[in-house]
Design a binder for these strands. Structure first.
Length: 256
DNA sequence: ATGGTCGGCAACCGA
């Protein structure tokens, strides 16, 4: 099984990148964040000939998540239980007996802002959500754009960036509490090295060329799946092409 | 190099 995640920063703008990447890489599942499209405008016809099933939940202009799968998609939920306002940030489904949770975690805007408090609360709600709905002994994958860099080696300049909204000790603590459910960071499982990023801010001049990035996207798995994971890597190739997203494709493979 | 990002969507907001 091969599963991938991609922050599109507008699904409609990245349609060519996505369909080409699917053709070349043939993952079983692709999870997408920041689709930036409301459901009535979702580009289903343009994705139809990929042969993938697709489920999605979006809103106008902001946020939006989707799951594409070659295999049947079952048991679809959006948002936290009893919290419908977060629908465009969380979509879950069962695929081939694996529970998949695709999240676009709030960015937080500024450390002093209410949006940052909302981000911390969001992580706490996610922690409770996992506890309520899943067991760590089950095959569960949690992936997406987490807007969290955990360690110094997850950002290009820890000294400069420490204390920012995606990289600080308080955030790391909140994140770790969620991961304590029983999740392993699959990229770190296979690669201990720094300078491996999934996001480059458009506002940093030549940020991608100079590899001034952040590792903000993750594929997390519970133990039954983590021990079957043979590979987890960052595919930078599509990012280097025309009309790139600011994120890359992150891919994990599992023994069947 | 006296400038320097995107995308949505129609004036700015969010990342």
């Amino acid at each position: 099984m091969k599963i991938a995640t991609f922050n599109a920063n507008s699904l409609r703008t990245r349609l060519n990148i996505i369909t080409e990447w699917l053709r070349e890489n043939a993952p079983d599942v692709l999870c997408i964040q920041e689709t930036k499209v409301q459901d009535k405008d979702f580009p289903l016809p343009q994705l139809a000939d990929t042969g993938y099933n697709v489920v999605y939940k979006g809103q106008k202009s902001y946020n939006g998540v989707a799951i594409m799968s070659r295999l049947p998609i079952e048991n679809i939920h959006t948002g936290f239980e009893e919290e419908p306002q977060d629908q465009a940030r969380l979509i879950t489904a069962d695929i081939a007996g694996v529970s998949i949770i695709n999240t676009y975690i709030p960015q937080g805007r500024d450390i002093e802002s209410d949006m940052y408090q909302y981000k911390l609360q969001w992580l706490e709600r996610l922690r409770i959500y996992f506890k309520k709905r899943f067991k760590p002994t089950e095959p569960v994958i949690w992936l997406g754009d987490f807007n969290v860099a955990l360690e110094d080696k997850d950002v290009y300049s820890p000294e400069t960036l420490r204390g920012s909204v995606c990289f600080n000790a308080q955030l790391t603590e909140h994140f770790k509490k969620v991961a304590e459910f029983g999740f392993t960071d699959l990229f770190r499982l296979h690669c201990p090295d720094g300078d491996n990023y999934t996001f480059w801010d458009y506002r940093v001049p030549n940020g991608f060329k100079r590899n001034m990035g952040w590792r903000l996207d993750y594929i997390m798995a519970t133990q039954p799946l983590a021990k079957k994971c043979t590979k987890c890597c960052i595919d930078k190739a599509p990012r280097a092409k025309q009309k790139p997203s600011d994120h890359t494709f992150l891919v994990a493979e599992f023994k069947t």
